[in-house]
């Protein structure tokens, strides 16, 4: 697993209080991991903090699964 994927999954486990095993690439934050709209906003903010970037709202709305987050951050993380 890439370093980015590890860091992303750690945040998700911590913020959503889920088991690491559930955090698969296909897992949807809202449908599979029990996140509500506020949880999703918080996750994006934690990604921004961890990777020191700013994710525009229109981009943030397209990040709905673990895999999408890892891919986006892989591309944009500094």
């Amino acid at each position: 697993m890439s370093d980015i994927a590890t860091r992303v999954k750690k945040i998700i486990v911590d913020k959503l209080g889920v088991d690491e095993a559930e955090v698969t690439n296909e897992a949807s934050f809202t449908n599979d991991l029990g996140a509500d709209s506020l949880d999703t906003v918080e996750l994006i903010m934690e990604f921004e903090k961890e990777f020191n970037i700013s994710i525009p709202d229109e981009q943030a709305e397209t990040i709905t699964t673990v895999g999408q987050a890892v891919a986006y951050l892989g591309e944009h993380a500094k």
Partner: peptide, 11 residues
């Protein structure tokens, strides 16, 4: 100065 308030701050 960038606002990064936690979405759970107010509730």
């Amino acid at each position: 100065g960038t606002p990064r308030f936690n979405p759970f701050f107010i509730p």
